[in-house]
Simulated scan of single mutants.
Amino acid sequence: MQLETSVEGLSAQLTKLEKRVVDAEERITVTEETTAAHGKAIGFLLQRETELVERCEDLQNRARRQNLRLYQVPEGSKGRDMVTFIKKLLPTVLTDLPLKEDDIRIDRAHRALMPKPKENDPPRSIVIRFADYTVKEQILQQAWKQRTVKMGERQIYFDNDYSPELQRKRAQVRYVVKQLKQKSIKAKCLCPARLRMSVGSEEITFQTVMDAVPVLQDLNMQFRKRNTKYQEEEKP
Rank of each mutant, 00 (worst) to 15 (best):
I28S: 08
T29D: 13
T31H: 13
T31W: 14
T34L: 12
T35L: 15
A36Q: 10
H38N: 13
K40A: 10
K40E: 12
K40L: 12
A41C: 10
I42Y: 09
G43I: 00
G43A: 07
G43T: 06
L45W: 06
L46W: 07
E49A: 13
E49W: 11
E49N: 14
E51A: 13
E51K: 12
E51N: 11
R55V: 11
R55P: 05
C56M: 12
E57L: 13
E57D: 15
D58V: 01
L59K: 08
Q60N: 11
Q60E: 15
N61H: 03
R62T: 08
R62K: 13
R62I: 08
Q66G: 10
N67T: 06
N67M: 09
L68C: 04
R69Y: 03
L70R: 00
P74Y: 09
P74R: 07
G76M: 06
G76E: 04
S77A: 12
S77P: 05
K78R: 14
G79P: 03
R80L: 15
D81R: 08
V83C: 06
V83M: 06
T84F: 10
T84H: 13
F85V: 00
I86W: 00
K88P: 01
T92E: 10
V93A: 01
L94D: 00
L94F: 04
L97K: 03
P98N: 04
L99E: 04
K100G: 15
K100M: 06
K100E: 10
D103Y: 03
I104S: 03
I104R: 01
A109C: 07
H110L: 07
H110N: 11
H110P: 01
H110K: 10
H110G: 06
A112D: 08
M114R: 14
M114S: 12
K118S: 08
K118R: 13
E119G: 01
N120Q: 11
D121P: 06
D121Q: 15
P122Q: 02
P122D: 03
R124W: 01
R124P: 01
R124M: 02
S125I: 00
I126S: 01
I126K: 02
I126H: 05
I128N: 00
R129M: 10
R129C: 10
F130Y: 08
F130M: 05
A131S: 15
A131Q: 14
Y133C: 04
Y133H: 10
V135F: 05
V135P: 03
V135I: 14
Q138L: 15
I139P: 04
I139K: 02
Q141G: 00
Q141S: 07
Q142V: 08
Q142W: 05
Q142K: 12
Q142T: 15
W144G: 09
W144H: 15
Q146T: 12
T148R: 13
V149W: 01
K150G: 00
M151C: 05
G152R: 03
G152T: 05
E153C: 08
I156E: 02
I156Q: 02
Y157C: 00
F158G: 03
D159G: 09
D161F: 09
D161L: 05
Y162D: 07
Y162S: 04
Y162M: 08
